Amino acid sequence: MAASGAARVVVWVVAVVAGVVSAGLIVALVVDPDMADRTAGVTGAIVGLAAFVLSVLTLLRSPGTGSGGRRVRAGRGGIAAGGNITGNAIGDRSKVIGSPTPSGPAPAGGQGTDVQAGRDGIAAGGNITDNAVGDGSERR
């Protein structure tokens, strides 16, 4: 799962801060072991509190709004798929006849793209190929 630009910046900032704090604790351990013990205890408490706050914020966040979350919704009579819709006959007397078309390249947009079909609509997060849609339609 790929992270967005802002998420990457946050990850790098956290990694650099963690590296600097770790190096500082190692230097403190060499210079004054008693001070390093107290400093590590305070640092651990601060990191634990920050992790607790982050976990609460993550739990309170609405589902599907983060990176990688995808909502797939369809209105009354609608059809929605998070991926590809291929080789379907939708509607009375609809037929899909013949060999399937080779699939094309995956669409851009990534995993976080929401998919929503309105009333009687069709929507897909991927490709829509080889379908017969509508009453009596036929795909050859």
Rank of each mutant, 00 (worst) to 15 (best):
Val96Leu: 10
Gly83Trp: 02
Ala51Glu: 14
Leu54Val: 15
Val72Ile: 02
Ala81Cys: 07
Val20Tyr: 05
Pro105His: 13
Ile90Lys: 07
Val27Ile: 12
Arg8Asp: 05
Ser103Thr: 05
Gly78Val: 03
Val115Glu: 00
Val21Thr: 09
Ala23Ser: 11
Gly134Asp: 03
Gly134Ile: 06
Ser22Gln: 08
Leu57Pro: 11
Met1Lys: 07
Ala45Thr: 14
Gly91Ile: 13
Met35Pro: 01
Gly19Ile: 10
Ala117Ile: 00
Val115Asp: 01
Ile26Met: 12
Gly112Phe: 01
Arg70Asn: 04
Gly136Ser: 13
Ser137Met: 05
Arg73Glu: 03
Val16Phe: 15
Thr58Ser: 15
Ser22Gly: 15
Gly98Glu: 08
Pro63Ile: 07
Gly48His: 15
Leu60Pro: 11
Ala2Cys: 08
Ile85Met: 05
Leu25Ser: 06
Leu29Gln: 07
Val20Asp: 08
Arg140Val: 09
Pro63Glu: 10
Thr101Leu: 09
Gly87Gln: 07
Val30Gln: 06
Gly5Ile: 09
Val21His: 03
Ile46Val: 15
Asn88Trp: 04
Ile26Cys: 06
Thr58Ile: 10
Asn131Trp: 00
Gly87Arg: 12
Ala117Trp: 00
Thr86Ser: 09
Arg140Thr: 08
Val42His: 05
Ser55Tyr: 15
Asp32Phe: 11
Arg38Asn: 06
Val96Ala: 12
Ala106Lys: 05
Val13Glu: 07
Thr65Cys: 03
Leu49Gly: 15
Gly91Ala: 08
Gly109Phe: 04
Leu54Phe: 13
Ala3Met: 13
Arg119Val: 10
Gly24Glu: 01
Ser62Phe: 03
Thr58Gly: 14
Val115Trp: 00
Asn131Arg: 02
Thr43Phe: 04
Pro100Leu: 14
Gly118Leu: 02
Thr113Glu: 02
Val13Met: 12
